[in-house]
Design a protein around this nucleic acid. Structure first.
Lengths: 144, 144
DNA sequence: TTCTCAAATGTTACTTTATAACAAGCAACT
DNA sequence: AGTTGCTTGTTATAAAGTAACATTTGAGAA
């Protein structure tokens, strides 16, 4: 099963970082993995409530914040949602495409374009940090 | 006064587009212009309430949405805020640089790089919508 | 002028998203 | 056991955004 495999990798990743992938965090990660694309915090919260009876917003937000900080998830600001990072081990920067309709996500390599952006930003006196580029649009299936 | 000048340009811009920069919209634009960087909708709402006694959220959101659609403002998703577009008339998408230290904002033209990104995304079956690129980093003054 | 229509704004109520603040639990070490 | 620090639970509330319908206004037609 692919989820189990990812969780295992995530666990190793966290151990390397010296942080703990606790039961709760793992559970939240599994829930996010269960979706094909973008998930919202309150969706995860609802799922969590189904599984363990009760849960409050801070429970979910803390877990999600942790997972983002650990590099296991990305936050999609434009949609107030979260997606799984599919390049946990490799530390290249991602170009994340999100379909605003169905929430499907695609990750490409953003390295070349970020080189250009770094140069452009540098000209304006800005030093761009390591990060992902997130773009929203329509995927092939949702195209009008 | 720089604000008055910008408003005038904005007015011309709207006339060219065949849309109306009404008194309310102008007032909201002026309020946003009064801030050096990112402004939040509810800050604008509070200012508006000071100036005209009462105002409800939809009043502000509608004006902000209009101003974004007209290209006079950009929405900064990651901060739930808005900034003035300093390239009115160039009809471009913004490359918005935010200093993680001091919060200073710089806007460049993202059109060329988005052309590249559109092509790359198109190869993956994604049609990228009109949007801004937001990147975080360090500005010259905050550089270590 | 007066009517009419569409766009803009007002108003009420609500939904969604997110966080503060403090209490309780738990595991790891002394 | 005691203490320490991180994690989670709990309550309450703040912040952000929208739906739905009423009212106003202004430009063009009758």
């Amino acid at each position: 099963m692919e989820i189990a495999c990812f969780i295992e990798a995530a666990d190793r990743h966290c151990q390397q970082q010296g942080v703990k992938l606790t039961a709760l965090r793992r559970q939240v990660l599994e829930l996010v993995l269960g979706y094909p694309g973008v998930v919202k915090a309150y969706q995860v919260l609802a799922d969590l409530q189904k599984q363990r009876g009760i849960a409050a917003p801070p429970t979910v937000y803390r877990a999600l914040d942790f997972l983002v900080a650990a590099g296991l998830l990305h936050k999609v600001d434009a949609l107030n949602g979260y997606i799984v990072c599919h390049h946990v081990g490799c530390n290249h920067e991602g170009l994340i495409l999100v379909c605003g309709d169905c929430g499907r996500v695609e990750e490409l390599d953003a390295t070349p374009v970020l080189d250009v952006l770094r140069q452009q930003a540098g000209g304006a006196g800005f030093a761009i940090s390591q990060q992902n580029l997130m773009l929203t649009g329509r995927c092939k299936e949702c195209a009008v």
